[in-house]
Design a protein around this nucleic acid. Sequence first.
RNA 1: GGUCCCGUAGCUCAGUGGAUAGAGCAUCUGCCUUCUAAGCAGAUGGUCACAGGUUCGAGUCCUGUCGGGAUCACCA
Length: 625
Amino acid sequence: MRFIRFNFMASIISTLQKAVAASVLSLYNDNTDAAKVQVNTTPPDFTGDYSVVVFPFVKISKKAPDATASEIGAYLQENVPEVKGWNVVKGFLNLEIADSYWNNFLSGLLADADYGRQPRNGHRLMVEYSSPNTNKPLHMGHIRNILLGWSCTRIMEAAGYDVVKTQIINDRGVAICKSMLSWLKFSEGKTPESEGIKSDHFVGDWYVLFEQKSKEEYEQWQQTEDARKQYASRKKEEQSEKEFFKDYKNKWFNDYSVLGAEVREMLLKWENHDPETVALWKKMNGWVYKGFEQTYSDLGVDFDKLYYESDTYLLGKDIVDEGLDKNVFYRKDDGSVWIDLTDAGLDNKVVLRADGTSVYITQDLGTARMRYRELGCDQFVYVVADEQNYHFQVLFETLKRLGEPYAEGLHHLSYGLVELPTGRMKTREGTVVDADDIIAEVVRLATEQSSERGEIDGISPEEKTQNLKRVGMGALKFFIIKVQPKKKMIFNPEESVDLQGQTGPYIQYSYVRINGLMQRVEREQVDLSCAHAYANIQAQEKELLVALQDYPNIVALAAREYDPSQIANYCYALAKSYHRFWHDLSIFNADTAEAKAFRLSLSKATGQVLKSGMNLLGIEMPTRM
RNA sequence: GGUCCCGUAGCUCAGUGGAUAGAGCAUCUGCCUUCUAAGCAGAUGGUCACAGGUUCGAGUCCUGUCGGGAUCACCA
């Protein structure tokens, strides 16, 4: 048993790689790195399960590719029990694997509830994700962030890490003050309860109102004498009036806007701990958190540790002093502190303002060290949109130069913007896809389509609701995660609720089919123990076995690349193979008891891996649909 | 302008340097008396942005060009 277990764990590919390296040594007296031997799955049109690329050995053997392949093939069949047969086509050595290997593999997989999960590696890794501002509700962009982040925590956990899930909530600053001021001026004491609005949306509505009022104020100001003067003296050549005032908006807000002055005054009061302002801030943030909680719960995610920017925004000044001592930083005449990263292809960067206050990066330096001490993590993953690529390059390089012990364990999981088919989402144009809206919509659609099918009518209302939610969320989540993180994605709301084709529900449906089989196995007390006697593995079955065999590699790959889309695409391919298997072969009505037991076992194993893989994406499986 | 990312079928996306570049959507055509047809099978659809180079072999690696995006704040 120990021997079988060993081979099972080692995977057939590494067995073959080692065997090929041994054959090259034996035949041509040359040492080859086994890990570099290329072993691929054989394309469908050829006979065989795995193929060895022999071109790299031609120079060593000093023979034609086909002759070299034949010699290695003969050696492998002679010396490797798993290799049943071989053939050579155009320099490719195709190997057939013995049925007994596949039978052992299948029983090993079924006996291992944690199949695909790697041994603990002794590292503790933090994943920071979501990290919203508290002035408005979550939208599509946050959903991508949250799903990537959550999925990353699951994958890293499976890959052997002890994972800590965190977010840093941007609960202070100009944005929340805008919501606060707007509510104070215009709300007449309305509350989420009095208006019957989800509380984070309620706060967001005041933010939107603020922006509207501000826009009106700006338009009026543009007619004033001051505005004409600014335009005349500052405009660039060829710049239209409209373009000029677009660019000038920030400057106007700081120098002329009445609302702007009021916001800054409020921010100042907050920084000085003015009791009324702090109370208002707490009240409105409380509304936001209550709303966020609901959205997080709908998405099925949570956190181990929350950080608030109001607690961390002053951190990092001690590191600045330290960096000055170590000559990593330098001070300019005006008192501001900088780091020179030009030799790393980056620029000079401010780490402390001339007035001694923090900038964004100061806080991140401080937070990193605090987390290292507080959480005991030596690796950190920041799930943040790609517009901050440069910031993280600078941050990581700075931490490295400061000699921080975790500096080699930093990773920015950068992801591209979510766009609509019509272009970028814009708050001002009301084209932002709200998180709660899209969640409600996918569940509604799943419900609608399910009632047309009528397949889940016989189950309890609780189970029914749960299944429908899982299908709807499965559609949404898979749609987002299947795209590689670094690519920007086009979010088509109509396609995201599709339940057919390359979708979450397609994968869930294969699982539901398997679930139905397993319930019948239970009911009829089918004995699966004769599965190992099956000796006529069909192409559709082989396809599944090869895919199942690959699962641990895919988990490792997804972890190595911080790329959940690898898991998504794998699950889809596996489900596709299963649907074909289901269609082409009889399972319960198989010709022999062995075939029936084998196919049921294979189905069970497929269900196990599909459930495991989808779980890494945060997608739950329905029992029926 | 500097740096980074992207460019694959009408659309959305896959594709550890390996065989004839694949899926889904859309369009068209078949398959439910049999384990759930949210399924299966087939047809149509490609100058892998362009030009060089490395290699036995390039969608993949290198250089350049073009197109799209991000960023280069004492903002976060």
